[in-house]
């Protein structure tokens, strides 16, 4: 059922009033200054955070390199010690072997002397 014209007119009139009274309000005079100040603070904070982040990253890399290098050096040292220990064992075996050979020779000589 169509609305009576009178009602439509009232709505239109009301809309006109609404449009007139809902015009944009002027922003407070201090708003722009506050926005610009907040922007400066925000940018400074972001810049500082970025510096701190890079510093932390660099420190992490140095630490990782130090730990890695330290482990590698330790590993090399362990290897070297292992090599040294092996050489000493072989030397000891050679000495022992020579001593045993000399002992055998003396015993053999003693046996020959005893038989004669």
């Amino acid at each position: 059922m169509p609305e009576p014209p009178e009602s439509i007119h009232q709505i239109t009139e009301f809309e006109r009033e609404l449009r007139q009274n809902l015009a944009r309000r002027p922003a407070p005079p201090s708003l722009k200054r506050r926005i610009l100040e907040a922007r400066t603070r925000h940018r400074t904070a972001r810049f500082r955070n970025r510096i701190v982040l890079w510093q932390r990253l660099a420190a992490s890399l140095v630490l990782a390199a130090s730990l890695g290098g330290g482990y590698a050096w330790h590993h090399v040292q362990q290897q070297r010690k292992g090599e040294e220990a092996r050489r000493q064992v072989f030397t000891a075996l050679r000495i022992t072997n020579r001593a045993l050979n000399e002992m055998n020779a003396r015993l053999a000589a003693h046996d020959r002397a005893a038989n004669e």
Binding site: R24, R25, A27, L36
Partner: peptide, 18 residues
């Protein structure tokens, strides 16, 4: 940026206030 603030601050402020 500053010009955008000048141009639009009233609009943004009014929307938020309403």
């Amino acid at each position: 940026f500053e010009r955008l603030v000048d141009e639009h601050q009233s609009m943004v402020f009014s929307l938020a206030w309403r």
